[in-house]
Amino acid sequence: MDVERIRSAFPALELGEVRLDGPGGSQVPRPVAEAVAATMTAGLANRGALTPGEGRTEQVVAAARSAAGDLLGSDPRGVVFGRSMTQLTFDLARTLSRSWGPGDEVVVTRLDHDANIRPWVLAAERASATVRWLGFDPVTAELGDVAPLLTERTRLVAVTAASNLFGTRPDVRRVADAAHEVGAVVHVDAVHLAPHALVDRAELGADVVACSPYKFFGPHLGVQAADPDFLEGLRPDKLVPSTDAVPERFELGTLPYELLAGTTAAIDFLAALEPGEGDRRARLGASMAGLEAHEASLVDRLLDGLAGIDGVTVHGRPVRRTPTVLLTVAGHAPADVSRHLAGAGVHAPAGHFYAIEASRHAGLGETGGVRAGLAAYTTEDDVDRLLAAVASLTSS
């Protein structure tokens, strides 16, 4: 990949700092910021077809649904926008759980971010349904077998497409196929996968897939995608005057049109990471393939370097992973390691990053570890600066 060309689009990188904090929110390129600003000053209005302002607003919404559909391999008519992935998941959990009752079962995994755990656990508790937990190997961070947990009473299985703590990419399709055999709905958290690989809702076997644009160069927003026919069968809480059409019936209040424009710009930016031809989905495929190769090379360099530093432990050895590495340093609290790195101009935060169940299950408790997340704008020099900073801490 032409990493220098990509980096030139990010004003924040001109500060000279190493940004390995992308899993918590990536940096933003100029085209995204410009799209947000231009939309806010474009003379928009509430949605409609009477005035030019109404028409412009409709175009912004339609463009964002189309872009998100291309990103997630899903029908744009089933794309729902919300304040965050967390908010959208809580809303969906409340809606789906209305049909649950005593004896019904929900499966969640200990590998997931809490946003794909707690909404389902709380909804199950309110419905007096049973929660079944799918564990993972604390050493490899590989997800266990879901089949023994499934019964004819399983109503939903929630699973991550990529762990935001260890980078693990489970075999989601295998989980989904097993869940569908017993008639369960499958909800997939693709927040941590979407910045690193091409997402395809149908290929994953997901009934619903969710992501967050601010993890892939966009604004703070949540996106949920499902088959429109699936959404037609759900009756969420809504205001009486608001439309009953899908997907709008799931979107509470007025949409943040400027953030939708920024999301479209972010997806277009992703599609242009590598030269490509064809429609946007095809260009996304080419770009994400190039991105995976770029990030795989860098994460190998990072893992090899960390293996040569005494006192460093890398947590998780998944077979398939995103370029995300969780580490601890013997004799140093993760927060102190992160502080040391920050002093060297390297941003690699510490904590459990809301994957609290995963951190506990891996024996890291509430403290977690230091997370280094690579991105399209990461260079070999960035990796080497992190390694040098960690080595300087252990040698001292």
Rank of each mutant, 00 (worst) to 15 (best):
G103N: 11
G103L: 11
D104R: 13
D104T: 12
E105V: 14
E105Q: 15
V106T: 00
V106E: 00
V106Y: 02
V106N: 01
V106I: 07
V106Q: 01
V106W: 01
V107S: 03
V107K: 03
V107E: 00
V108E: 00
T109E: 09
T109P: 05
T109F: 06
T109I: 04
R110G: 10
L111C: 10
L111T: 13
L111H: 12
D112I: 01
D112L: 08
H113W: 09
H113R: 07
H113I: 11
H113Q: 09
H113C: 14
H113K: 11
D114W: 02
D114E: 14
A115L: 07
A115P: 02
A115T: 06
N116C: 14
N116W: 04
N116Y: 07
I117Y: 05
I117E: 00
R118H: 12
P119K: 04
P119C: 09
P119D: 08
P119R: 03
W120N: 01
W120R: 08
V121W: 12
V121K: 13
V121T: 15
V121A: 15
L122P: 04
L122F: 13
L122V: 13
L122D: 11
L122H: 13
A123H: 07
A123I: 11
A123L: 08
A124T: 05
A124S: 07
A124M: 05
E125V: 13
E125G: 13
E125T: 12
R126V: 02
R126W: 09
R126C: 05
R126L: 09
R126Q: 09
R126A: 13
A127R: 04
A127N: 07
A127G: 02
A127E: 06
S128M: 03
S128E: 14
A129Y: 07
A129N: 06
A129H: 08
A129S: 14
T130W: 09
T130H: 13
T130P: 04
T130G: 06
T130E: 12
V131N: 03
V131P: 01
V131L: 05
V131R: 04
R132M: 02
R132D: 00
R132F: 01
W133N: 02
L134P: 07
L134A: 08
L134T: 03
G135F: 12
G135D: 15
F136H: 15
F136G: 05
